[in-house]
Each structure stands twice: as structure tokens, then as C-alpha cells.
Design a protein around this nucleic acid. Structure first.
Lengths: 360, 360
DNA sequence: CTGAAAGCGCTAACAC
DNA sequence: GTGTTAGCGCTTTCAG
């Protein structure tokens, strides 16, 4: 290997030399400059600028054991990632918050079960300081992995295994919308408008968001005819199928609350095909308020809005807080607490609100 | 079960000791094991397993100057990222290919112009080995940045500044669909079905994909009435607005070719509102074949399909090839070529195909 | 084929 | 305040 090209990146050493200080002082300045005399700070800063110095993150990570990066793990089936703006929005919220804290976002997409090996190796390798993961199903292997590795993790959506107040040690940090409350509000609204046979198109019930919305529906309609509930899959097609089913079973339906906007859109289509007018004959309420979907539906959807981007931001904030608290990963915290005393182990539930448009 | 707590992760040193070899040999085994006697390989592998050893990427990067990570830069305005499945699909294609080559994906979202400083610092920091960037507008600062840093980069979509065969040194690696050819096919199809007043809803013309599709339309209809072209913005709403405009200007339209499916959907809505039947009165053809959009439109869209995920994969492959070729970044290649002689500096154009559904 | 040794660039004690 | 000095864990000549 010939000698280093002149274009090679300058090191801290070079900066120090040019500024006439030691590497240590140069380092102090680069990292904030506390406790260094002003004129030296200036000299070092100048050298940095002149040389175009940029710290080498690998070297820094090697000694600090911090990477300044966070993994975002998405394990959702392909179809949903693409059809539902939900993920992109949430990721954007996360990205904004991470960026504001100079933290990088490493995207890990899980295609199939076998990928978890790769994920585990990656996470165990110390490439990232923490992880953000979405809507886990009950049997998802991820929690076990992150726990084994001792990697701070925040979940998006209530994880499937958290049912009651949680057994000891199972405190999980997660962020979710008030799905149940939002669903209740939707149904109450329909009731208030005089609707009497209100159906529900549920999402896949192995997802807590779908289950919680169904619970909300049932809260308000405890004695509703079970035939008024059909399970969809959060897609337009699924919503259409469910609507058709519902109409076949109970032609007298005068309102539908769909567990997301995409399914509501599918319902709208079927209602139109079957000659029902919305909202005159049948009122429709969705959930999400994904602008590109709800606003441009025909007619525009009345829906339960959740602040998806805000939830993403909140997830990131929770994780960053946890990282600021602990050292490298697990415990070793000041007080001799047993488990990893991540402050944010309590869930954060964000509010929803009903947005009135034309469909109900 | 080793059950290592993070913090005391075993090092190569430990592996070597347990296997009774030197660190160098252990390293060789971990990195493939070429030229190490079989029984030593076995012993080291066993030690790795027993100890649960995972290499420290920072240490490795420090010496190899390779990070095993690639940046994916998305600078699209918010509205498009969320409404259009295009990006998620392409990112997924990229992710698949990168994963297959054990390379990580670092997502960089550009919110506003000021973010480019941050991006430059990040890229210059050597966090990643290369970059993948999307659909640049003519004046995008990114190319200058990556060139200055000498970071191998592949673009998705023909960059705005590549007009002709390109000036010397401006050879850019990019992957794009055959937008012009696809548009031609759409128009020819409409013509073949006997349509005589074919309008076009273009995308924002500062994006090459939109411009190229318009060119294709004009190729087939060189003397078309200019009032038959309206510019949209690739969103449902934009498509609706453009359709309304078109109808106002030329009520006799009997076909519309929209530059993407989302706009075609908006057009469908307006046509319905205005009492036009599709395809009887007006035939509609889209572009993209985004399943969630085209397939579930009402009526389902006839559209020009492009293999978005495949394009993403191709982008990643091109970049990985380039990385395998060069050392750490810029040049130092064998022949003393002036510019960075990345093999893949020629664009890759992928084929499109017309998918017939009900709208035309 | 294997081992010894020299760093990669940086931070963090610990002296001065 | 600032400099000195150890490494962080790994790859890679270079001997043997």
C-alpha cells in the first residue's frame, strides 16, 4: 500500500498540531470545548475549519462505546407497509426527533422469520445504541432478543403480550394511540347522529390496535348483534370484503365504523356498488386520518385522527431519554437497582380526536 | 448458554486464548478462515460459539475503513413520500439487496434545504461506504456534495442535470424506468382502442420522470392540442384538479393518460362527479401499477407497470458493485483515470409494460 | 501456515 | 487548564 493520499482525511492529531495544542485539548474543543480557554478554543476551531476536519466515528465509538445510531425495526407484512401511509409517517416522526439529537436511523426490515438471526447478530454487534420496533404480535421473537442483549427498546403500538398491568419485570416502554377511547368516540358520535344499527369492520385481531378498537366499539355497544362485526385486514380490499359480508348478513345497517381509513375506503366502494348513499343511507367513520386517504375519499371520510408522526417522535424521545440515562446498554446505573431501570418503562398513550368530514 | 451481559462482551483476544491460538489466527477464521488448518478453524469456531463472540464493528471499521453501511437519502417533499407507495417499495427493494450482501441501510430524510449541511457532515464522516439517492431536481446540492467527498453514489430516477449524452466527467450512475417508452405505449394503446381526443395529466415537470412521460405522450401525439395537457403534482388531489381543468377546457375528451396512478385516481373521481362513465365515455390509463392504488381503484386502472422494487434492487446492486471495485471511496484504482472510474457510471433503464384492467 | 507487533483515530484518566 | 499516556478491539504486514 503506497503512502496515504494527500486527500486523506485529517486526524485530530493534525488539528492539534496546526493549532499548537495537544490532541486532548483538540478533542475537548471538538466535543464542546468546556474548560478550555477561549483563545485556544478559537485556534482549534480555526484549524478544524482550515483542515476540514471531521471526527472519525469508528474511533470514537470504539472508546465511548456509543454509536449514535438507533435501529428501527419493521416487521410488518409487505402489503401493509405499502398500502398504509402509517409506517412512513411514523418513521418520519422518528427521523425528525433522532435528527434533532444527532442520532442516526438504521432501518431493519424483517422479511421472514429467518431474518431474526441476522437482526440478532446485528443488534448484538453493538452497531446501535437502542432499537425502535413496531406493533409486535404476541409471539414475536424480538423482545426476547433485545432483552437477552440488553438493548434499550421502545415499541410502537401496545405489544401483544402486555395484557393487564403486566407481571413484574415485564414493564415495556411503548407508545400507542388511545385506540379504545378513539373507537368509543366514533361510536358515540354515530349514536348521537341517530344511527341504530352500527356495524364494525375490525382489523386483524391479532394486532392490539385492532383488538383495542373493537373493545372500544363494544364498550359503547355491549349488546350489539355479533353479526355486526366483520374482520378485515387493514387493506382496502379487506374492507370491501368485510363490508360486503356485513351487508349480506344485515342489510339494515345504517352505519359502519371501520378500524382504519383504508378499510373505510373499501367499504365506501362496496356501499356505492350496492346502491347505498353515504352518509344518507349508511354513515361511515374511519380511523387514522391519513390525509392522502381520508381527505380524498369519496365522500371525504369522517374519521378518528391519531397523531402518527407525533407518536413516532415520542418513541424516539423515550428511547433517547433512556439512552441518556444508562451507560452503554444494560444497567450499570448509579443506584444499585436490579433490572435495567429505564425511566420510560411506562407506556405513553396519545390522544385521538374525531375529524368530521362528509361520510358521517 | 453463555448469557453474556452486555459490557463484558468477549473480544477476539478471549476467543484466541480459549482456542489456544493467536489473535491473528482467530481473526483469520472469523473472516472466512482461508489458509488456516482445518482443526484450528474448528477450534476457533467452537470458541466463538462457546463465548458467544460477536465482532466489534467499530474496531473493524477503524482499521479496514469500511463500514458495511450505505446511506439512503430521500429528499422528496413530505406529501409525496406519504401518499405514494413508490418510495416504500423502492426502499424495500434496496433493503433486500443490501441485506443479501450484509450491508446496512442508514436512512437520511431531508426535510429542508438546511439539512444538507448535516447530511454532508454525516457523509463526510465516513459513516457509510456509499449512498443511494432519489429523483433529484435540477438544482439539488447533493451531487456536488457526494462528488466533493468522493462518495460512490447511485441515483434513483434520471437526475435533472443529465440531459444529453452528458459532458465529460458527468457520467452518473442511475436507475430509471423507461418512462418515455412506457408513456408511448399507453398512448398507442389508447389510439388503438379508437380514442381520438387523448389528454395527458402530467406530473410536476421539474421531475424528470414527469417530463419523460410527457415526452412519450408527445412522441405519439406530436400535433396534439396543447390544451390537452395539464400539470398535476403526482397526488390524488392534483390529479383531480387537472382533470377538472381539462374537462373545462375540452369537454370532448375521450381518454386521459395520467403520469401516475394516484393522479389517475383523482381523475376517476372527477369524471364520476361530472357524470362521465369510465371507460365508456372516457378511458383512463395510469402509470406505476402500485397495487394498492391501481388494483382497488373504481374501476380498476389500466396502467403502465414499472418494477419499482426491482429498480431499488438494481440501485443497490450497482452501488455494491462499485464498492467492491474501489477501495474506500475515491479512486486509487489501478489505471490512473482522472475521475472516479466507477464501472457502473452508465444508467440502467428498466422496462415497463402495460397492464390492462377496466379503466381503458 | 501461524504468531508477534504495529497501529487505525479517538477519549479519558491522571498528572502537571 | 492542558498535556501525557493508555488503551478501545480489530486487521494486517512481516517474520519465522
Amino acid at each position: 500500500m503506497p503512502e496515504q493520499r494527500a486527500g486523506d482525511r485529517p486526524t485530530l492529531e493534525a488539528v492539534a498540531a496546526r493549532a499548537g495544542v495537544s490532541r486532548a485539548t483538540a478533542s475537548r474543543v471538538v466535543n464542546g470545548g468546556d474548560g478550555v480557554r477561549a483563545h485556544l478554543v478559537a485556534r482549534v476551531r480555526e484549524a478544524v475549519r482550515d483542515l476540514g476536519y471531521v471526527p472519525n466515528p469508528a474511533a470514537r465509538t470504539l472508546v465511548t462505546r456509543r454509536t449514535g445510531a438507533v435501529a428501527v425495526i419493521i416487521a410488518e407484512p409487505e402489503v401493509r407497509i405499502f398500502s398504509d401511509p402509517f409506517f412512513s409517517r411514523q418513521v418520519r416522526g422518528i427521523a425528525k426527533e433522532l435528527t434533532a439529537h444527532d442520532t442516526q436511523l438504521v432501518l431493519l426490515l424483517v422479511e421472514d422469520r429467518g431474518d431474526y438471526d441476522r437482526i440478532e447478530r446485528y443488534l448484538a454487534g453493538g452497531h446501535v445504541d437502542g432499537a425502535l420496533a413496531f406493533s409486535l404480535h404476541t409471539d414475536d421473537p424480538l423482545p426476547a432478543i433485545t432483552r437477552r442483549i440488553g438493548l434499550p427498546t421502545v415499541y410502537g403500538g401496545r405489544p401483544g403480550w402486555t395484557a393487564g398491568p403486566g407481571e413484574p419485570g415485564s414493564a415495556v416502554a411503548y407508545v400507542d394511540a388511545d385506540n379504545r377511547g378513539g373507537a368509543r368516540e366514533a361510536v358515540r358520535y354515530l349514536l348521537a347522529r341517530g344511527r341504530e344499527r352500527i356495524a364494525h369492520i375490525a382489523g386483524p385481531l391479532d394486532q392490539t390496535s385492532a383488538a383495542d378498537r373493537l373493545s372500544g366499539y363494544r364498550d359503547e355497544l355491549p349488546s350489539a348483534d355479533p353479526a355486526l362485526v366483520a374482520e378485515g385486514d387493514f387493506t382496502v380490499e379487506g374492507g370491501a370484503r368485510a363490508m360486503a359480508e356485513l351487508l349480506d348478513r344485515r342489510p339494515g345497517i345504517d352505519a359502519v365504523f371501520a378500524a382504519n381509513d383504508l378499510m373505510a375506503t373499501g367499504a365506501l366502494r362496496v356501499l356505492r356498488e350496492r346502491g347505498r348513499t353515504v352518509p344518507a343511507d349508511v354513515a361511515v367513520v374511519g380511523f387514522d386520518d391519513a390525509e392522502a386517504v381520508a381527505g380524498s375519499a369519496d365522500p371525504p371520510l369522517t374519521t378518528v385522527r391519531q397523531d402518527i408522526e407525533g407518536m413516532g417522535r415520542m418513541m424516539a424521545r423515550l428511547l433517547l431519554d433512556a439512552l441518556a440515562g444508562t451507560g452503554t446498554g444494560t444497567a450499570t446505573g448509579p443506584a444499585g437497582a436490579g433490572g435495567d431501570a429505564r425511566a420510560a418503562a411506562a407506556p405513553v398513550i396519545t390522544a385521538t380526536s374525531l375529524v368530521r368530514r362528509a361520510s358521517a
